[in-house]
Write a protein that binds this DNA or RNA. Structure first.
Lengths: 118, 118
DNA sequence: TCAATTACTTACGTCTTCGTAAGTGCGCGA
DNA sequence: TCGCGCACTTACGAAGACGTAAGTAATTGA
């Protein structure tokens, strides 16, 4: 057996579980952008400059499978889809937020101007 | 190397800064394992079942460049190297811990009887 | 009727990341 | 002095994550 404690291993286990969920170039940012209000597919795409529709679609689908994001179709004349965080997703967002706060304090961006608060 | 547009830089906030630092299959786990005490190269390798020496070496080097991990050589007769978290690294570890806690509460392992790690 | 928007999907290619296997130089114990 | 452990490095290759470009189906405004 290893010399780490059971509690430690359970924690490490949780880490890998969380990492599986947020693994993907855009997933943490998607979660971040959904923290305030639901967004439509196109709105998300516009908020993630550089993402392609294919990747956005893929990562949203995976986030749904992980139970982080909820997809809702609104039955209007014109197709309307909204993506929002589930309750677990909202909690995950708190952890993502902790990362973001660390990053704005200690990460080294090219310039210290804050562009994406809130 | 082909640089992407600077529209991406609009997103350059704390989150992406933090994600840059922890991007790497083993980095969050490395940080997590250094939370308690400094570890030697070989100790780390044994605690990360499945990692290769090449990858461990690479990711440690990148973590040093990010200012997360400190490498110390002890000038004993026999070569001895210890890796530990810097103060910013220790703070990053708190955010990583938040992820781990979320994971052990809400993360969904593929199968209920799958042992984590290894 | 034409063009545009929304919400995607599909095919294809590239590029990064990761892993495997082997090699290096040093000191130490047997 | 032989081999082993430590702390790495190097070369090579495979996998898959990501991006580009185009296509689809429905609807609506011009």
């Amino acid at each position: 057996m290893t010399n780490t404690t059971n509690a430690d291993e359970q924690q490490a286990c949780g880490l890998t579980a969380a990492l599986n969920v947020i693994s993907g170039k855009w997933k943490p940012t998607i979660i971040w952008h959904l923290h305030a209000q639901p967004l439509r597919f196109g709105e998300l795409r516009r908020r993630l400059p550089g993402i392609s529709e294919k990747i956005l679609s893929e990562q949203l689908k995976e986030l749904q499978l992980s139970g982080i994001v909820r997809r809702e179709e609104f039955d209007e004349a014109r197709l309307r889809v909204e993506y929002s965080l589930t309750p677990p997703g909202a909690l995950l967002n708190r952890a993502v937020h902790a990362l973001a706060e660390w990053g704005s304090a200690y990460g080294n961006p090219p310039a210290p101007n804050v562009m994406c608060q809130r």
